[in-house]
C-alpha cells in the first residue's frame, strides 16, 4: 500500500472539521486539522501537505490572505470551502490561485471527487494527448472534435475555448481567466462575448443545451468541463 496522502483541513467550525476529517480518514487519507490561519501557515511549511482544504472565514486571518501567502512559495493544491452566496469571493480566490472551491453544505462524495481532481491536476499531464469524456473526444493536435463519433466543426475561438476547458477539466475557470487566456490581457472584461461563444459551443456539442453533459456553468463564477474518463 502506497503512503497515505496528507490533507490539511483549515476549518474553525469544530463540527464541520470533524465531519470532514472523519470522511477523509474513512477514505484512507491522513488528516491534519487546524482552526486558525496562522496555524495553517506554519503547518503548511512544516508538514508539506499534499492538498489543503481552506475555509475562507477564519477567526484570525482572512482566508484569502492565507491563500496568498501560501501561493507565494508553494503550488500545493488548495480547495476553498465557502458559503453559497458570495460569488465574488469565490472568483477572487480562484484568481488568486486556488485550485477549486466547494460550497457549503456539501456531501462526502462531492468532497472526495474535488480532492481527487485537485490531486490529479498537481501532476501535470503531457500536452499531446487526446481528451475523452462520455463520448466527447478532443484531439488537440489534429484540432478535431468528435461527439458520439460524429465530427463537430468549431470556429477558431470556440476550439481554443474548449481546449482551454479540457486541459483544465474538472476545474472551475473564471470568466476573467478565460477572457485573458483567449483574447489577451487587454481584452474587454465584459464577458458577453465569452458567454455567446460558450452558448454556441454548447449548441454544437450538447444534445440538450439546457441540460448539458460536458460543460457546466458555475453561475457568477465561470465554467467547468466534465472530468476526463479515468480509463486514460
Amino acid at each position: 500500500m502506497s503512503t497515505k496522502i496528507n490533507v490539511l483541513v483549515v476549518e474553525d467550525e469544530k463540527n464541520i472539521g470533524n465531519f470532514i476529517s472523519t470522511t477523509l480518514k474513512n477514505n484512507h487519507y491522513k488528516v491534519i486539522e487546524c482552526q486558525t490561519g496562522s496555524e495553517a501557515l506554519s503547518i503548511t511549511s512544516s508538514h508539506c501537505p499534499d492538498v489543503i482544504l481552506l475555509d475562507l472565514g477564519l477567526p484570525d486571518l482572512d482566508g484569502l490572505t492565507v491563500l496568498k501567502s501560501i501561493r507565494n512559495w508553494s503550488s500545493v493544491p488548495i480547495i476553498i470551502i465557502s458559503a453559497r452566496t458570495q460569488e465574488h469571493e469565490k472568483v477572487e480566490a480562484l484568481d488568486l490561485g486556488a485550485d477549486d472551491y466547494i460550497t457549503k453544505p456539501f456531501g462526502t462524495s462531492e468532497l472526495l471527487a474535488r480532492i481527487r481532481t485537485a490531486l490529479r491536476h498537481s501532476t501535470k499531464r503531457s500536452p499531446n494527448h487526446i481528451f475523452t469524456a462520455k463520448g466527447l473526444v478532443i484531439d488537440f493536435d489534429g484540432r478535431l472534435i468528435h461527439v458520439m463519433d460524429k465530427e463537430v466543426h468549431l470556429t477558431q475561438i470556440e476550439f481554443k475555448l474548449i481546449s482551454l476547458l479540457a486541459q483544465n477539466a474538472g476545474k472551475v475557470l473564471t470568466y476573467d481567466f478565460m477572457i485573458t487566456s483567449i483574447w489577451g490581457p487587454y481584452a474587454d472584461k465584459n464577458n458577453q462575448i465569452l458567454r455567446v461563444n460558450m452558448a454556441n459551443i454548447r449548441r454544437k456539442i450538447e444534445q440538450n443545451p439546457g441540460d448539458p453533459k460536458y460543460i457546466f456553468t458555475e453561475v457568477g463564477v465561470g465554467y467547468r468541463m466534465i472530468e476526463e474518463d479515468s480509463s486514460l
Partner: peptide, 8 residues
C-alpha cells in the same frame, strides 16, 4: 445566459 441559469 438564460440557458446557463436553467441548467445550473
Amino acid at each position: 445566459l438564460l440557458e446557463e441559469v436553467i441548467s445550473e
